[in-house]
Amino acid sequence: MNGRDGNGPGHGIRNGNGNGRYYGEALMNELTQESPRTTGDGTLAPLGYDNSGLALTDICRSIAEVVRVGPSRPRRVRIALGAASVEVEWDGEAASAAGTAPAPHPSGPVAAGGAGTEALEGHRECAPLVGTFYAAPAPGAPPFVQPGDHVEEGQQLGIIEAMKLMNPLEATRAGRVVEVLVGDGEPVEYGEPLVLIDPDDTGAGGPDEEG
């Protein structure tokens, strides 16, 4: 399954163009760092928040979510905690190219996950069927998992909706979530990698072998 060629023939849906995605991933990892202070710049202390670390984490998570469900990856994200200002800037051209329609035109940059993720090490939870991926149990609800979360085998990672039926996506291995590879509401193909997990069982590291 993982043998699918990310740089295969130029067909719309499977034409995973990794550009931009990588930028988005890097950004999101940065935004969701475990310690909020590593992303702060000393302005936290003067504000005197007792729970400022938590607040920043929440904001970062919200932004990560906005970034995830947005029409495309943002070009720039600015956070100013002092005045509680958050600016997310999208590239107008990229946004209009990606579109926001529920059934995207397959010639658009849909369902990437080939080229951009091949290089990532870890265990990939792949789509067991063709459908729509949902990262959260309901619109607006917090996602099932986020990068950094530890998951147990059998824990729900997301939902794949096919023909109005909600099919749970469950972890087949315990480990730490490295990355959720597709955005909420994105169409996915059978076998497409959805969640990258760094397995606890280090003896069987590296990309999962599937038949």
Partner: peptide
């Protein structure tokens, strides 16, 4: 084809014979 969608594993019952997978695609 102009576009292609992977709809399931090799066994026909889970791919080419799966109405939900084909309609979703």
């Amino acid at each position: 084809a102009d576009a292609a969608v992977c709809i399931g594993p090799g066994a026909p019952r889970k791919s080419y014979l799966s109405a939900p997978a084909v309609v979703e695609a």
